[in-house]
Amino acid sequence: MSGIDIAALGAKYAGLLSQLAEFALVTVLLYLPARFVLRPLVSHGLARWNLNRTLEQTIEKALGVVTVLVAVVAGAWAAGFAGLLGGSALFFAALTLAIGFAAQDVLSNFVAGIFIVQDPNFNIDDWIEWEDKAGFIDDIGFRVTRIRTFDNETVTVPNTVLATTPVTNRMSNETLRISYTVGIGYADDIDTATRILLDAAADHADILDDPEPSVRVAELADSAILLQSRFWIADPDREDFSVTRSEYIQETSERFREAGIDLSTTTQHQLSGNLSVDTDPRE
């Protein structure tokens, strides 16, 4: 009797192992051609269509997920697992409920990712700022977006955060305005200081002539007159912004010194200058 039970048990597990082997074989045979033939062909076709890089990567990721699902479902069906599970409506109901609770955040981030991808002003390599953080978009996934900071660190941000939080894109337009505020003493000539700021902008190769640079009296502070210089750069990115800012500050500082305008009489904040950027085309 014991021998018969062992034999039956062995036959049962042998059948299960056979099903598992068939499942693995069919899954692999379907996945490998799709992974190494179909997906490269699709990627090549997308490249020829000159699609936006963000959309191209999203399509490739979606194709990868579909490839795995199709291979797994086909393997399960061929091995007979689909029929085994299909007979239990209660099992599927419990499984669906469990997945629903476990995947709430995943699904919300997935939906948010779809909205992010379809936004033409939100693309790979864009320089964005959100919640006092900043960096370049490296990748937009189904759950998170990966941001490369200016210190070359990678930050993973849930898609729902970027979809529901105000995000500033410094590269969404063809031009970017830089506003630089500097303080001069009350004994200094405003017209001379204004001319220095405008000439420094006019002489810089990367600062645009149109829109024209401008200088305004921003504030009469306790110890200084604050002048705000505004100028524009084209095709902005973080490197262009940083280099242009540094060169402009250095050049204006040297010209102020040559003109006898002593910035050291101002407070430390005014001496260093207050530099901001925006993409508002209005003066």
Rank of each mutant, 00 (worst) to 15 (best):
P158C: 08
D278M: 03
E60C: 10
P120R: 00
V28S: 07
A134N: 10
G260C: 07
D105G: 15
G3Q: 15
L30P: 05
L16D: 02
A259F: 01
G10P: 03
F81C: 05
V217T: 15
L227E: 04
A103V: 07
D105C: 06
F136D: 09
A79M: 06
T252D: 05
A102F: 12
V155G: 05
Y186K: 07
L107T: 11
T279P: 04
F136W: 10
E22D: 09
A134F: 09
I225F: 04
I140D: 00
A78G: 05
Y186S: 10
G135K: 12
F92R: 03
N274Y: 10
V73L: 15
S18A: 13
T145F: 09
T96E: 07
R195D: 15
T279C: 06
D240M: 09
S88K: 02
G100S: 15
I6E: 11
D151W: 12
A74I: 04
A202P: 03
G141Q: 01
D191W: 02
A89K: 04
N52P: 01
S253G: 08
A8E: 00
S229Q: 09
A62M: 08
I233M: 07
R282G: 12
V68M: 15
A71E: 10
F150D: 11
D189A: 14
T27N: 06
T96F: 04
A187W: 09
M171C: 15
D139F: 06
E212Y: 05
E212C: 07
S223C: 08
R257L: 09
F122Q: 06
A134C: 09
P33M: 01
V155F: 11
D222S: 03
N169V: 00
T96S: 09
R195V: 03
V37K: 08
L32V: 15
I233G: 01
D151T: 15
V277M: 11
G273K: 13
F241N: 13
A74R: 03
D191F: 13
T181P: 01
L162A: 11
A79V: 12
S276R: 12
V28E: 05
L107S: 08
A14P: 06
T265N: 10
F231T: 00
T156R: 14
T58K: 14
T192M: 04
L9Y: 08
A202F: 10
D105L: 09
A205C: 06
E247N: 02
G83E: 13
D235K: 12
L29V: 15
G141P: 05
N50K: 14
I233V: 13
D138S: 14
R282P: 05
S2P: 03
Q270N: 02
N52M: 09
